[in-house]
Design a protein around this nucleic acid. Structure first.
Lengths: 132, 132
DNA sequence: CGGCATCCACACAGATACTG
DNA sequence: CAGTATCTGTGTGGATGCCG
């Protein structure tokens, strides 16, 4: 069973581009950054990531974690207890990736002002040309 | 008109997370990296990105470029000639982002071996547990 | 609790056809 | 050439039910 059909189709692509897509995927980014702080349990992680606005669905988080685990970025520690307890953490490989991703995220935050400004200019120019 | 409805819905999110999604989006990543080398024309960029496997659809490239332009990462230079000629290049802001993204892409390439290894282990363990 | 399987709705990606 | 408009397949994600 393939993780998802989009990947099955893309199996012919250069493999590193696929890994890059996993790391930069919508939820992959957030999972990696969260796990950089500490290990998380499944539901904990879900709350952390979806702490505001829209959250991850259970299905998407599962899928994201499985993909990242398969690529060797995330370690899954399932403890055979009742009730079940599963902890997710970064591997060394995953930590390297996560640090790069976090750097990008931090940069984004510091540059938000410039982005906002650019958007206002863009929108203004667009409005002006529409009602000429 | 919003760029896309997913963004309209996410308008309530922390804005920097949206920008991060633009930068790390499927085609955004590739566009930024390509433009780091030099400026490209529309079709040129399309060929460069889809040079193998699957490419970008015209629509998605348009959409990606418009989003990145609005965020102030990409500069669009449309020359009023026949036939039309439009050149895309990075702004200073976009160059900063693109360099981060490229670093991540390069890291991914150098680490492909480890990822492949991790995957084989994962798949082997999975097969073993399935047919127990 | 931490999943997996299924169904369903819908947004999005992509192909196609068309325009300035 | 560089788009826009439109249509359709598919991926995404919610809801639900079930299991270890």
């Amino acid at each position: 069973m393939a993780v998802s059909s989009v990947e099955t189709n893309a199996e012919a692509m250069c493999p590193h581009r696929l890994v890059l897509e996993h790391v930069t995927s919508r939820w992959g980014v957030l999972v990696l950054i969260a796990l950089l702080d500490r290990s998380y349990r499944f539901s904990e992680l879900r709350r952390e990531i979806g702490g505001f606005g829209r959250g991850v669905s259970e299905k998407m988080l599962t899928q994201t974690l499985q993909t990242l685990e398969r690529d060797g970025f995330v370690h899954r520690d399932a403890k055979p207890v009742i009730p079940p307890r599963v902890d997710y953490s970064l591997t060394d490989l995953g930590r390297e990736a996560a640090e790069q991703v976090r750097r990008l995220a931090v940069w984004t935050e510091t540059r938000m002002g410039a982005v906002q400004e650019a958007r206002e200019g863009y929108d203004a120019r667009k409005r002006a040309s529409e009602q000429e």
